[in-house]
Write a protein that binds this DNA or RNA. Structure first.
Lengths: 128, 128
DNA sequence: ACCCGATACCTTATGTGACAAGGTATCGGG
DNA sequence: CCCGATACCTTGTCACATAAGGTATCGGGT
């Protein structure tokens, strides 16, 4: 027993809570952004931070692996582009397959939101 | 290399997708139900299945450990009750602490929902 | 009398995404 | 000349969800 673990092991509190709730959401967010137009990774990081109003605090360690997964599954396509600069960027485009998948994700998400709303609302009234 | 893995490794498809999206949601759902009145575990299973309209397909292996975690952190209290039957039930009540936590969870959840809505809506218009 | 499905509780092994932390390299300013 | 921003990446750890499997009781149906 060295330095008493500064916080209880299983309680990073609000940060963990937020993280768990937002789980799976990043994929939806990323594909949505890409459905408008192509973007490169670092750009996505900034776009998501702005758009989500701080709610979607995507980290680099989350985004890059996610992009690789989406690429592997054929939902997006990557192309390196230099555009005259020596610091090249990796642009991602959504594929038709990705659009189909995105539609599915949207459906799932609104289903969940509706389900939760109903559950929360219903409960307020039950009171039985 | 025995029987070719019936489905690609990382693609349990819709089930996984749904699971990841709903992550963290169960805690909110359970505490919400308990905020109305006390329930025992198996009962929660059924209540959640009904209320959530199939969206919140809580499994036993998810619920019981969750209840233990909530108990350990003082958000709920458990009491065994026989009520004349030989098959006793373990009833859970929400604590004041749990109510505070629930409020926090609700806030986080609606923040996420709002953030996502905004992001999805905004994107539809940007089109830039 | 007997078995089975529902009721009720539980645990262990596995998967998966999020993240912290750390790495590489370029470029523009001060 | 160095530092912070731009850009990309990886590895180790955590926490939750689930599949699968266990124990035990009870009420019906045959």
């Amino acid at each position: 027993m060295a330095e008493h673990t500064e916080a209880a092991p299983g309680s990073a509190t609000i940060a963990r809570l937020r993280r768990e709730l937002a789980r799976g959401t990043t994929e939806l967010a990323v594909l949505s952004v890409l459905s408008v137009r192509r973007r490169y990774g670092y750009e996505l990081l900034k776009v998501l931070r702005q758009a989500g109003e701080g709610v979607l605090e995507v980290k680099e360690g989350t985004l890059y692996p996610l992009l690789h997964r989406l690429e592997d599954s054929g939902h997006i396509l990557a192309t390196w582009e230099a555009e005259g600069r020596s610091r090249p960027r990796k642009y991602y485009v959504i594929t038709p397959d990705g659009r189909t998948y995105l539609a599915m994700l949207r459906t799932e998400w609104s289903g969940l939101v509706d389900g939760m709303r109903q559950l929360l609302d219903t409960l307020g009234e039950v009171q039985e």
